[in-house]
Amino acid sequence: MTLTILYFAWLRERIGLPRESVTTEAATVADLVAELRTREDRYALAFSDLRAVRVALDQQLSDFSAPLAGVREVAFFPPMTGG
């Protein structure tokens, strides 16, 4: 499947892009993160501490154990600081 992956705040800065299209067979978010980490150092660095990373699937907050079946858009970002 092909996913659109979005990165925000320091994840965007560390990875160096706001979005990309990724073709993957990853079953869960955790599998996708594991795959991204092996790509390049900048991904490994961005995903080095998952306690500092949140994920949204198709614009709904989710978690790393969530399945990716049927998902089109995955977003990774730090804990939100609105208000």
């Binding site: 925000f8 907050l61 970002f77 730090p78 804990p79 939100m80 600081t81 609105g82």
Partner: peptide, 9 residues
Amino acid sequence: LKSRAPFWK
């Protein structure tokens, strides 16, 4: 808003 709306300062 503080921790569930997707804003980053």
